[in-house]
């Protein structure tokens, strides 16, 4: 097959998949994520389904703590080095800069910011969550390595707070992902956030912060709740 033929074939296939999208109205996947056939460099034809090829559809597994002195030591290490994901999901993220600057300086407590979900194990849900963000939060949460902890900031994550009647924001966060520490207030002061970290440390050292396992245990329940409100569920059930 010549190069020109290959190009023609590829563009034809892409056009087909785009036509499929237009025909089926309820389909939320973007054209490039559609299941399609791709011509490999050697001329062979491979079927590609981007949504399922690159992600796992398996359920998460429960990872039991080892127990004993080893686990105690590891828990101490986990507690003294909390890596927070730098994802400001709501207006509470305005109080994150004061936390990393001279006034409040959370580095003293071994709390650091990390930019990618792969390297962080604590997630500050800073305030209200709109459904659009919740979708990203779930994906990010599932990508974080276990054990992982969630700090929910503000009254909006507890019961909806000021936005209890909004069509766009969720009311209770713990219906969708398990929460370790709630920090109440609108918006909570940085001192409250620091106290939240101290509380989280205490929970980790006592071995009580095993919410990632709880998520795995009640996976179906959480997924049902998530699917109820996320209308365009165009992602695999679980991705890591």
């Amino acid at each position: 097959m010549s190069e020109l033929d290959l190009n023609n074939k590829t563009s034809e296939m892409l056009a087909n998949s785009e036509a499929n999208v237009k025909n089926s109205k309820k389909n939320f996947t973007r054209p490039e994520d559609e299941k399609r056939e791709v011509v490999a460099p050697d001329g062979s034809i491979i079927e590609v389904n981007p949504l399922y090829d690159y992600f796992s559809n398996e359920k998460p597994k429960e990872e039991k703590p080892r127990g004993g002195v080893v686990e105690k030591f590891l828990n101490w290490a986990r507690a003294e080095s909390i890596w927070v994901l730098g994802f400001g999901t709501g207006c509470g993220s305005i109080e994150i800069p004061p936390l990393v600057t001279p006034r409040f300086d959370m580095f003293r407590y071994g709390v650091q910011m990390r930019p990618t979900p792969r390297q962080s194990n604590a997630f500050i849900i800073s305030g209200y969550l709109s459904v659009k963000t919740l979708k990203r939060v779930i994906r990010t949460y599932e990508q974080m390595p276990s054990p992982k902890y969630i700090l929910a900031l503000g009254s909006c994550t507890i019961n909806g707070g000021m936005y209890y009647d909004s069509y766009s924001t969720i009311n209770r966060l713990d219906k969708y992902i398990p929460v370790d520490v709630y920090i109440a207030g609108c918006m909570p002061r940085p001192e409250a956030l620091l106290h939240g970290f101290v509380k989280l440390k205490q929970l980790i050292k006592e071995g009580k912060a095993e919410k990632a396992n709880e998520y795995a245990r009640n996976f179906d329940e959480y997924k049902a709740n998530q699917k109820k409100i996320i209308k365009d569920w165009n992602m695999p059930d679980y991705n890591w």
């Binding site: 979708k135 019961n159 069509y167 009311n171 409100i229 365009d232």
Partner: peptide, 28 residues
Amino acid sequence: VVEGWDETPFMRRDFDTHEYAEKTYFPR
């Protein structure tokens, strides 16, 4: 601003946001 919205357009006066929120978002 919203994804996959298939209800009444949300800024119309006949869309009741409170009712929708109570129906959808598990009020505590």
